[in-house]
Every structure is written in C-alpha cells, then in structure tokens.
Design a protein around this nucleic acid. Structure first.
Lengths: 231, 231
DNA sequence: CGCGGCTTTGATGTTCATCAAGTAAAGTGG
DNA sequence: CCACTTTACTTGATGAACATCAAAGCCGCG
C-alpha cells in the first residue's frame, strides 16, 4: 500500500512557492510536524467519495484523476491533473466529506497536512489565506471552464481536445504514453467508449496521430486544433 | 439604467450573516463607505465577460443567470441562482477579468463593495477570510456537481431536473412563473430549443405539469422526480 | 395593426449509443 | 514460464436520441 517517508524538508519543497510562500521559517517547521508524505502506485485511490476529510492534500509528483460515480455505477471523470493542483481541493473548506474520488494515473507522491492545522494558519496568516483562496479559485475556474469547453464540442472535437490537453498541458510533448484507458477518456468527455476508439482510429487513418500501444504521437497538431475547434 | 441608493445600513443587512458575521461594528461602518447598491431591471446585464473586475458583488434580491458565449456565438448558461450566492463569485480572486457574464432574470438588487477593500479585510480578519473561502467553495462545488448531474441525464431527465430545480430550489413552490425562455433552458441543459419545448409539451399532455403562459404548475411531483432520475 | 421575436409541431437527417463478436494485451495461478 | 482468465481494445451493423429545418401560430410592443 502506501509507504511513509521520513525526512522533513518542507523548507525546500517546491510546493512552498505555490501556497506556502507567506510562511516564515517557524511556521514551516511547524508545518513539517503536521505533514505526512505518501506514495501511491498507479491505480491506487488517494481519497474516496464519501470519506471524511481530515487532511489538506496536494500532489507533489505524478498524475491524478478526479471523478465520481453516478447512481447507475458509471464513472464521471471531472478532471485529470498534474502536481501543484490540489488533490483534495474541491470541498475541504465547504464540506465534511469528499464529494469526489481521486486516484493515481501514474505513480504519485501526495503530501498531507492536517486540515485543522491549515485552518489555524489560514486564520492567523492573511497572506497565506489569500494565496490559498486564489489558488483554490483558479483550480475551480479551470474545472468549470474546461467542462464548458468540452460541452460545446461534438464527438471528434472532444477527442481532439483531450489529445491536445495531454500534448500541451499534461506532457508538453507531442509524444506521450496515454495514462488513461479509452474508457476513461470516454468518461471524461461524456461519450461512449466505442466511439472514442472509433474516432482515434479515424485520426490514425488520416495520419493525424500515430499509435504504438499506449504511446501516442501527435503528427498533425494544426489539424487536431482545427478539429477541436470546429468539430 | 441603474439607480444608486443612499441609506447606509449594512449593519442590519441580511447578508451580514452570510459572510460578514466576523466583522465588528467599526469594520461594518467602513464597509458602508465602500459599498454601493444597484438596481437592475429584468434582462439587464450585471457584469460582462471580459470586463475588468473591480468590485465584489453579491445579489441582495432577485434572480440571476451566469453564462458565457461560445466562439460560435451561442450561449452557455452555467447556473441560475438566488440571493446570497455571489454574483461575481467565480474569478474575483483568481482573475483580473470576468470569465462569465451575469444578467438579471428578475428585477434584482446587487450590492457592490470595492474589491481592494474586501482584500484588505480578508488579510486582516481571519474569521472573515475563512467564512468567505467556505462560501466560495460551496458555490463552486454546487456549480460543478450540478453540471455533472445534468450531464448524466438524457433529454427528458434534464428538462425534469430543471423544472424541479425551479420548484424546489428557486421558488419553493409548485406554481411559479418561468423566469427564462425555452431557449435559455436549452442553453442551460445543453439541448436544442425545439426539443425542450417538445418535452415540456409531452409533460403537459401526460398531466405532469400545467402551463398557463409563463406560469407553470407542477402537478405530479413524484413522476417528475422519477423522470429526472431515470430518464 | 403589423412587425419581430418567442413558441409550437411535424418531417427529415445526423450523430451517437448500443449490441455483438472478435482480437489483442495484460494479469493470475499452477 | 506457460496456460488460462480477464480486461481492454477494435470494428461493423443497427437503431435510438437528438438536432435541424421549415411553416405556422401566438404574443407583446411600438
């Protein structure tokens, strides 16, 4: 399962820049005592819908998906995201329990800080509070606008959008290993698995992408962008 | 256009309970000096996509819709909401400009407080900051989960959902005047106008609702709930 | 009282989901 | 390490759900 790591070096953590920049050395020391770093293997669940929220969690390395399950049992993928976007972002301040599940799409390291401690900090340190609010707002904005973007597209536009998302935002490379199954893409863009596969096959036939197992190469970026925009 | 009101009685404003409960009398006095109360007639735009954000706005009375325009020019309605949910909520802390437009669906009163003043308060007063963050998180959560709920339904399920939303959340009454056009409902649930109308006609024929012009009466609540859940 | 926008309904066509059947790939246990 | 099982992927055929188009009625407003 999950292994606990020992050394405590929050002072030099990359994440400090992101939301903890307002903390002085003392607070950072304290932070160290309240944090725990966990490793999650690809596929493992980081937190589960309905579970009680007791930690402020953020992704240090890896890749995760945020999702929920509908009453009928199928999955809705809300977003797929890289480090320094929070993991337990959505509801930590507004809800007692997680509204959504988070699982690791790649091996991931998650840092967890006791939520009460974060709340204390928040109350004491206005700069920290402002930084955190800004970050949370930005993440929420991104999720909402992404959802709206997807909604306005048709099948092939959505598939193109996802491929571009991986290329530009997640991997910053035209060649990458797909971290998700075709079904997960389908659950992300709200289309059927069969049609996602069909569309990708089309793209392959037309020479827009190349596929070697899990590895994808985007050949014709421009065309993919046109399809994403205009279907 | 908009008329400015004079008296300054933030101390007794309903909204004080919602996010300003942590403020002492002095801060509330100060708040008064930085606020402005504006009246918007049904149909008027409260803020526009792309406009610079300089105020923290919240709805005191009325009803508004949050929406954006796609590159092709059609509208996407993000949510329809009642007082005490912020108006300019989404991006005030994360963006310089509005990502979305807000317009009045009914005559509305909006209170506007200089954003810099709010930010000062936020930095100084931890309790206020926490309250605000909690509120913003909750609003964002609601938008996201609402969007996911809608996405998993089919045409008739979505229409049923909207009718129930007006009945239970907006008007708390089985009889109400529809504040939106059929087209706006369509833009809200992501279906075509013609099919929204067709579906409502079906509901009428089946005796689930009654329609007198803009006035809607939900007759068979139970059936509407079943349709909303199972299509 | 006539014009333009919203609504309504039917007819038609497109898009997409579903079903089915087969293949490849990836675990799993002996 | 191989046989076995399961899960993911693939493709075609079919039908359902939904968009679009068009024509007509209604309503509010100048």
């Amino acid at each position: 399962m999950n292994e606990k790591k020992k050394p405590c070096s929050c002072a030099s953590c990359d994440f400090r820049e992101v939301v903890f920049s307002y903390l002085d050395e003392l607070s950072v020391e304290e932070l160290c005592d309240h944090k725990e770093e966990l490793f999650f293997r690809k596929g493992e669940i980081i937190n589960h819908e309905g579970e009680k929220i007791s930690n402020f969690k953020y992704l240090k390395s890896g890749l995760v998906k945020l999702y929920r399950r509908t009453p009928n049992g199928d999955e809705q993928v809300i977003t797929i995201t890289r480090p320094f976007e929070f993991v337990s972002n959505m509801s930590i301040f507004s809800e007692e329990r997680y509204q959504y599940s988070v699982s690791a799409l790649e091996d991931s390291v998650v840092c967890m800080v006791n939520l009460d401690f974060i709340k204390q900090l928040f109350l004491k340190n206005g700069g920290f509070a402002m930084g955190l609010l800004t970050k949370i707002s930005r993440i929420n904005d991104k999720i909402i606008s992404q959802t709206l973007d997807i909604r306005q597209k048709n099948l092939i536009g959505r598939v193109a959008y996802v491929l571009l998302y991986f290329t530009n935002d997640i991997y910053k490379s035209r060649v990458f290993d797909l971290p998700v199954s075709r079904k997960e893409i389908a659950d992300y863009i709200g289309m059927s698995t069969a049609n996602v596969i069909r569309t990708m096959s089309e793209f392959k036939k037309e020479g827009i992408i190349r596929v070697f197992g899990k590895t994808i190469e985007v050949v014709d970026m421009a065309k993919l962008e046109v399809i994403s925009k205009h279907g």
